[in-house]
Amino acid sequence: MSNYHAFEPEINALICGFFVLSAFGMVVIRQIGACLTVFIVQSLLLAASAFVLGAEPLSWHLIAVGCVTLLSKPILIPYVLRRLVPREIYTVREISQALDVPTSLLVALGLALIGFALGTRLVGAAPLLAKQNVIVGFASLLIGALVLAVRREAVPQMLGILAMENAAFLAGIAIAPDFPLIAELAIAFDVPLLAFIVSILTRAVYRRVGSTAVGELAALREHPQ
């Protein structure tokens, strides 16, 4: 036990490190399939972090959150996506980007710094066991938002939203471990619903437009004279 005590922060820090790495990965990886894989990895990391934090002191809340996460994100979401989104989409070799990769990486780095700064300030204000989660969560949240901005493809954008959600939860399990369970369960239920709705929409877009490059849709705008 005491051994674990010593390892716990280290392990958690490692998980968080990989987590932020995966967030960066979402920004740069060019294949949809690979994006999905990165997302699955990220979700697994989230679940792992929940288990690590929930182990000592033992918190059934966090264990439950970990289980729900494990069930919904790495399993249910890929399933929904595979079922509902046309298969052709995954064959697209490269996703069109709004910003080129080096620039997006630089922007992501800047956002990560802001996230780190905010997280550090908050952690400094209130005592907390898992400081890394908060810091990384904030940074990954902002990076996830960047994914929405730079990806012009439907599925990666949705994965961006889910990645943001992951980031929020990564921070959440640290700062609100005893957040009312009913709320967490409902949130966990939200995520597959989200995937379901987005998939339907993606399919409709694909059917109507012929591709899922939602970034190309720009018909609705103002016409300044």
Binding site: A154, I161, E165, L194, L201, V205, L217, A218
Partner: peptide, 17 residues
């Protein structure tokens, strides 16, 4: 569809924040 997508992306971004 375009409108729905934009609506979804931005408001979900907001909701996650």
């Amino acid at each position: 569809l375009e409108a729905a997508w934009k609506y979804m992306v931005i408001t979900l971004l907001g909701a996650t924040v």
